[in-house]
């Protein structure tokens, strides 16, 4: 068994988290809460020390440069947000939220149509038919696209052919969700393998 603290401490922490599988216990809760604090502190340092401070120190180095002055506006709005987090609600916080939402929406507007709607529609409009595998698959994809969209069409109550399309859309979605569940299970199993490999190899030296 390893005696290196860089292995032993993570091993103890790992086993403390696994203890929840037996039953709820204070050790698990303690580690969980410690993790929340560490994660928040880690993000804080990355944002402030590596992100904000270098940029602001550059701006403060040239305080009369228009670019530097312009950086102070979002900074003031950001301080407003922090103030609202400690209970002092300011108008600056509202401007901060409004500014972020407006810029985000403006940047997304032209690109969402291009990258998601037009490209995906174009890929669905390819030669299709029953004479070849490629054509058959393209036909199935086109039908699945239409039925999925029909399922989310709530303008009118689906009746007749529209209901048939909507139900087919539900079945298509179920196939996709089934595939996603399987892939997600695969993903989570990998994470457990990682922890077991750490315990068996690095801590207990049971495998090479």
């Amino acid at each position: 068994m390893s005696t290196d603290p860089s292995i032993l401490i993570p091993a103890v922490v790992t086993l403390a988290v696994f203890s929840i599988l037996y039953r709820e216990n204070p050790v698990f809760r303690a580690v969980e809460r410690l993790g929340v604090g560490l994660a928040a502190g880690y993000a804080f340092i990355l944002i402030v020390r590596t992100g904000l401070i270098p940029r602001l120190s550059k701006a403060l180095g040239a305080p009369f440069d228009p670019s530097s002055v312009l950086l102070l506006l979002p900074l003031a709005a950001g301080i407003g947000l922090v103030m609202s987090a400690v209970g002092h609600r300011t108008q600056l916080a509202r401007f901060a939220v409004a500014g972020a939402a407006a810029i985000g929406a403006g940047l997304a507007l032209p690109l969402l149509m291009q990258a998601l709607v037009l490209s995906q529609m174009k890929a669905s409009m390819v030669p299709m038919g029953l004479s070849s595998v490629v054509g058959f698959n393209a036909l199935v994809i086109a039908i699945c696209v239409l039925t999925t969209m029909a399922y989310f069409s709530f303008t009118r109550e689906p009746t007749g052919i529209r209901a048939l399309f909507a139900i087919s859309g539900l079945y298509t979605l179920m196939i996709a969700f089934g595939a996603t569940f399987a892939s997600l299970a695969m993903s989570r199993i990998t994470l457990l393998i990682g922890r077991f490999l750490f315990l068996l190899r690095d801590v207990f030296h049971l495998v090479q």
Partner: peptide, 28 residues
């Protein structure tokens, strides 16, 4: 994964694109 899954997710992506654009316009 390559056929019905792509069909369903493509329908979802198109929906996300349309709804996202509409929401962005409404925000602005």
């Amino acid at each position: 994964i390559r056929v019905p899954n792509v069909g369903a997710t493509r329908g979802l992506w198109i929906g996300i694109g349309l709804a996202g654009s509409a929401t962005a316009l409404r925000v602005i």
